[in-house]
Design a protein around this nucleic acid. Structure first.
Lengths: 346, 346
DNA sequence: ATGAAAGCGCTAACAC
DNA sequence: GTGTTAGCGCTTTCAT
């Protein structure tokens, strides 16, 4: 394998023309069984593998699927990536992953690189690039989005119902008897952050509860974002017995701030997250949250990309969130807990 | 950009031959300033970008660096990946990431794919592939390893001094007054797991302390691994005031088990980790651990790969671990804490 | 200094 | 069915 064996070698060795070998490789045409056997024997003996770059140049497909993830070191998107990889593993395709860092320029660059490298399809996770741009890209290359709904491309989007999930959380807390809420949302340039906040506020409103503006905080979808936002909430001096965070990472950060202020979870404050990343079940106490089947969403996105590639259609996938009740939520002090309907405990 | 513009277009438009354009692109030879200017203008106007696949086919370099990571959804290796990506960002190279899942066959496959795709260099993170295999691969393509020391390839390995780090942890605990230890190590097929365990045992031994065999547990380097191992430790009924874990993820899992058993950290049990992943500073209580500058290691690995690519040499990089004392460690009950020398608190 | 021409390894349209 | 012949888009001798 020091001098890589080429298709031409195989052809010569088997006494056939290069095209025949190519045909056998691609199943492009019928070949006499005996010739096929002969060629396949040589391929096996020489351990020949076609050069993907040459194939790409010749037939325009690179066997590569571009993936844009907001961040390579994110538990959440890491799971999705793993799902994508698992699906592509059974195919000749490989993912080419680039991170966008939640910055439009970086995302644009990532997209440019992927197109330049002639990826056969693109999977976009999250991100904040304009819908209009994406729509344009989608005309050049099969595109599927994960975790965001692109206007005009809805049937290519793998999303979860954020509103439904947040509603479940809020109902759970209301059921426990909470009336004094605080909320930490994500940066509102991201669609899901908006949806989660709106849903929380609306659901509470429906129950006759209003969150004071000062207790409606937001920040980056990160541990630090949550930590800092929680600090600002406590600084207001306003009372609350339940703190709703727009994702688990923020909840993790907020939990540290509560700890620093000597507030116990759940005795003093009930805390909730969103996503159910792996660490959430390991927090002390384990976090009540809403599960996004993010690994599965990655798988679905990859399958959708493959379908588009084959020219088949795909249909929108909306994942239903699942409320996961753990120990970070309790009735507020002085309230006896009433069993909530249809909740899952793990 | 619908019909991609090629080098030939540029040549024609500028009234020169393709070779001239190529030369300008690669700085391969001298070209009259005026011609160069003319061509560059056309390149800019047409927004021409050379097709990487064609370049790869023609000159044998793919501008791609293969990265094998044990897992795409790992906080630890995710950080390293981010470091690699950050460095490559300023170069024409791009990472092609494949995960090995801690399984030799998968790693081997990943390696095969990368070589087939003609990556210009390979960065191997962790992994359990035989040193012999890697040595062979290293003859075909520039290879650098991260987080493991490959026999015969030491100068291409970016590692941290595991023994030193573990020694710091143990000394810290000894200093606090602990005498009754338990230990949870990683799977010993991994080098660093062996080093960390040996160092812990040896350092304790040096202080006249022995861990009973039953309190010397091990498991996968994961949250679940730590959770389960801690369960087995507690099941022995043997007393211990300090629990040393071979990495942060295990410590996180162990922490949950302690919580479940009603044991407080650090009042009842002091707990330590290794790596200082992001979540460790957010645990309740924040975890005492040893910092691996894993992001930096990723950067260094990427730079080393680039150096090898240019035919320059590289030299071994050993990172020095840094003890990070947080709130998960305390003197054991009844012992007054003595200030430990040279420790960092954050 | 620059153009012509021959590949890089493969695929595909075209003959036979 | 199968071989011949052009490319795919770029690089790189080899001339001039």
């Amino acid at each position: 394998m020091l001098v890589p064996v080429t298709l031409a070698h195989v052809a010569q060795e088997a006494g056939v023309s290069p095209s025949t070998v190519s045909r056998i490789l691609n199943g492009t045409a019928n070949v006499t069984p005996e010739k096929r056997a002969r060629v396949e024997a040589v391929i096996a003996r020489l351990n020949f593998k076609p050069n993907p770059q040459a194939q790409a140049l010749a037939n325009g497909r690179s066997l590569t699927i571009g993936v844009i993830t907001p961040s390579l070191n994110s538990t959440f998107y890491g799971e999705a990536l793993a799902g994508v990889e698992a699906v592509l593993n059974d195919t000749p395709y490989h993912p080419l992953v680039i991170s966008g860092q939640w910055r439009p320029e970086r995302e644009q660059e990532a997209l440019d690189v992927l197109l330049l490298r002639r990826v056969d399809a693109v999977i976009l996770m999250g991100g904040i690039l304009d819908d209009a741009i994406l729509e344009r890209v989608a005309q050049r290359v099969p595109l599927v989005a994960l975790g965001r709904d692109v206007r005009g491309l809805s049937e290519r989007c793998v999303v979860m119902d954020n509103r439904l999930g947040m509603r479940a959380i809020v109902h759970h807390l209301l059921h426990l008897g909470h009336r004094d809420f605080a909320f930490i949302g994500g940066a509102e340039r991201q669609q899901d952050a908006v949806e989660r906040r709106e849903s929380a506020v609306a659901t509470l409103h429906g129950a006759g509860v209003t969150i004071p503006n000062a207790l409606l905080e937001s920040g980056e979808y990160t541990e630090d974002g949550g930590r800092e936002a929680a600090g600002r909430l406590l600084a207001t001096g306003l009372p609350f017995t339940a703190l709703i965070c727009a994702n688990d990472q923020m909840a993790l950060g907020a939990r540290l701030t509560l700890y620093r202020h000597g507030l116990r979870v759940p005795e003093d404050v009930s805390l909730t997250g969103f996503d159910d990343v792996i660490t959430s079940s390991l927090m002390t106490p384990p976090l009540t949250t809403v599960r996004q089947a993010i690994y599965d969403m990655g798988e679905v996105a990859a399958r959708a990309a493959l379908s588009l590639l084959r020219g088949e259609g795909v249909s929108m996938q909306v994942f239903t969130p699942e409320l996961i009740v753990r120990e970070s939520t309790h009735p507020p002090a002085g309230v006896r807990r009433a069993a909530a309907p249809s909740e899952v405990r793990r």
